[in-house]
Computed example of a mutant assay.
Amino acid sequence: MPTFSFERTAPLPLDEAWRRLTEWPRHGAVVPLTRVTVVTPAPTREGTRFVARSGLGPLAFNDPMEVTIWHPPVDGEPGLCRLEKRGRIVLGWAEIEVRPGPGGRTRVVWREELRIRFLPGFFDGVLDRASRAVFGRAVNRLLRRA
Rank of each mutant, 00 (worst) to 15 (best):
F118H: 15
T106Q: 06
I116S: 05
T68R: 12
G76R: 06
A42K: 07
N140P: 01
P25Y: 09
W18G: 05
V126A: 15
T68D: 08
G55N: 10
A29V: 03
R8F: 05
V134L: 12
R45D: 11
I69V: 15
G28T: 04
V36S: 14
G76I: 02
T9S: 12
G28S: 11
F122T: 15
G103K: 06
L83M: 05
F6M: 10
N140E: 14
S54Y: 05
P2V: 02
R115E: 11
P43V: 02
R115P: 00
L143E: 08
P58R: 09
E113V: 03
E84P: 02
H71I: 06
G47M: 06
G121E: 09
G125E: 09
G57I: 00
R141A: 14
H71R: 15
I69A: 13
A130Q: 14
V90D: 00
A29P: 01
P78C: 10
R132C: 11
L56S: 07
L14I: 06
E46P: 05
G104H: 06
I89S: 06
R129L: 14
R132Q: 15
V109D: 10
P102L: 13
L142V: 01
R45M: 07
P43W: 12
G92R: 01
P32I: 07
L83Y: 06
P72T: 04
L143N: 01
P100Q: 11
G121F: 06
T22L: 14
G55E: 07
S5L: 11
G92E: 05
P64F: 01
L142E: 12
V108Q: 00
G79D: 09
W110Y: 15
T40D: 09
R82N: 01
G103V: 00
S5Q: 13
F6D: 12
V108I: 07
A10D: 10
R145A: 15
P64R: 04
V74R: 15
E16L: 10
A60Y: 07
R129K: 15
R26D: 13
G76F: 10
V31D: 08
G76Q: 07
D63P: 00
G76K: 02
A42G: 12
P43T: 08
T106L: 08
D15S: 09
D75S: 07
W24A: 14
E84S: 13
R8H: 08
T44D: 15
G87H: 05
N140I: 08
P2K: 11
L80Y: 00
R105M: 12
V31F: 11
F118M: 15
